[in-house]
Amino acid sequence: MTDEQVTALITTTLERKPKDATHWSTRSMAREMGLSQSTVSRIWRAFGLQPHRSQTSKLSTDPYFIDKVCDVVGLYLDPPERALVFCVDEKSQIQALNRSQPVLPMMPGVPERQTCDYIRHGTTTLFAALEVATGKVIGSLHRRHRAQEFKAFLITLDKEVPDDCDRSRR
């Protein structure tokens, strides 16, 4: 293989799409470039190219987005003195599953054993808060995903805050 062939292969991979597909495969690129499939695969691997993978993203249209990000990141990196900073998130529709039989514990020479089937118990919602300074996680599970469950989580979070904190700034 010449350097020009490698350059042409990489350029084609990065700058063109095949006529009849959404992305290049090793076979279609090999046909296009007159090379073997294994050669295309080796070159892609060497240059870290994976044309079959894609990611999507969406940029905010908020004109103050950068300022807001700087404020939040600044709060995490340099919180005000004597302040508790929490990063709060939620995960809804978690499947509540349980094995159909008890897990058999590991013994010398025998691995832990468990059944492959399970019983469904509906879904649950997880609300969690990370205390940035200490890494402590406070979470709660709820059957539903509504404002009142989130409010109940915030009440739980409030109970975890030490009594000597200034509660007037909440």
Rank of each mutant, 00 (worst) to 15 (best):
R146L: 03
P51Q: 04
A8T: 12
C165H: 13
E4V: 10
E149W: 01
R45M: 12
S41E: 13
R169Y: 11
S92N: 13
P63L: 04
Y64A: 15
A152N: 09
R170L: 14
T125N: 12
L154Q: 14
I10N: 00
I10H: 01
K68M: 03
S28N: 07
T7P: 02
P79Y: 07
D166G: 00
Q95T: 11
L97F: 08
Q148F: 11
T12A: 10
D89Q: 08
D166H: 00
T12R: 01
K91W: 07
F65L: 02
D62I: 04
V85C: 05
M29Q: 05
V73D: 10
F150W: 15
H121M: 05
T156A: 06
A133I: 01
C165V: 14
D164S: 07
R120D: 03
L35M: 13
E131R: 11
L77W: 10
C70Q: 14
T11P: 02
D158S: 15
Q148W: 06
P162D: 08
W44T: 00
L14P: 00
V103E: 06
K68N: 09
F65H: 11
V85R: 00
M107K: 15
V6F: 07
T26R: 03
L141I: 03
R53A: 03
C70A: 14
P51V: 01
V73I: 15
V103I: 13
T61D: 14
C165L: 11
G109R: 07
